[in-house]
């Protein structure tokens, strides 16, 4: 999470006529999640997970639409969504590489892994390669310290990383043709 308000100077995002919260998503969330909680607002995290899986990030317009859908103020949605690291508000590459930097991983050489990735792909943590294939992030503990150093590639955990091998794996991913776009990314996306 972050308590810094970033991108404050960013111009207001362009609108599109077609809603991000499609009727299908709305129905799905309303049927599955509204009965689970006494208040509709509690469906906010599940809804954003759904949007994240659909679009890879949370578009700004979706925040307005969510406020209408859940019957809460836009500020309340913005307040919540800006708190959670997994809900990125800008588009990222096809593969998001989250390298753990916490103590167990650093003790076992996570810095070397990250340095190798930076060197090979020419991006710093938080940046995306020019071909929009790879976004590199540095994250705190992933809860897999016995497999240190470890990283998430989208939603898949990769452990016992060895810099050269891992970079080769990433290069293979980024070279693979992907005509179907994001939704067809060959990683296990959990649809909940």
């Amino acid at each position: 999470m972050t308590w810094l308000v970033e991108d404050r100077l960013k111009p207001y995002a362009a609108r599109r006529a077609e809603p991000y919260l499609t009727d299908a998503i709305k129905t799905q969330v309303a049927e599955k999640y509204f009965p689970r909680y006494p208040r509709k607002q509690a469906a906010l995290l599940p809804l954003f997970h759904r949007l994240r899986q659909e679009y890879g990030y949370i578009p700004e317009q979706a925040i307005d639409e969510t406020a209408d859908f859940l019957g809460i103020a836009r500020a309340e949605v913005q307040d919540a969504v800006s708190f959670y690291e997994e809900f990125r508000l800008t588009p990222s590459g096809e593969y998001v590489i989250s390298v753990c930097r916490s103590i167990s991983c650093e003790l076992c050489g996570s810095r070397a892994v990250l340095e190798r990735i930076r060197h090979v792909f020419g991006v710093d943590p938080g940046e995306t390669t020019a071909d929009h294939k790879i976004t590199v992030l540095e994250v705190e503990c992933l809860g897999a310290c016995e497999q240190a150093p470890c990283a998430l590639v989208n939603e898949d955990l990769h452990g016992h990383l060895e810099p050269d091998n891992f970079v080769r794996k990433l290069q293979a991913l980024s070279a693979a043709r992907d005509d179907q776009g994001r939704a067809a990314a060959p990683t296990g996306r959990t649809h909940i």
Partner: peptide
């Protein structure tokens, strides 16, 4: 369950 446990969330579901 924490967000990073994607696979485990699936197992639990």
């Amino acid at each position: 369950i924490r967000g990073e446990y994607h696979r485990q969330a699936g197992i639990l579901e």
